[in-house]
Amino acid sequence: MPGVISNDLIRGHTDTIILNVLRQGDNYGYGIYKRILELSDNQYELKEATLYAAFRRLEQDGFIAGYWGDETQGGRRKYYRITPQGREKYERDCRDWEFAKTILDRLIRGGDENDG
């Protein structure tokens, strides 16, 4: 996996990424992991250990809710669904991201035209 996205950069967005996956339907740990890999076109793999820590945090804060599936073979899956508060948080995060993206772009690339 090419290490183009630094962990520092993605760390602050793990929660939003998970909320984005769950916004599109309930899912379980490995399913969410696969979906993230898929969304990144196999360019980014979020470690499962990070993922589970985030589930616990999001669940405690009431942004997602866990429930057990009724699989009989090979152990039950724990599914997560997004709560209304989770949706609100996702919308907020998106706005923040748009704002940060614009500012960061200016900070990282801007300035040339002013040097004249």
């Binding site: 740990g29 490995y30 499962e48 589970y52 616990r56 699989e71 152990g75 899956r77 724990k78």
Partner: peptide, 11 residues
């Protein structure tokens, strides 16, 4: 948590 990790790791 252990059950969750076990079933996902298995899959």
């Amino acid at each position: 948590l252990k059950e969750e990790l076990t079933s996902n790791l298995r899959e």
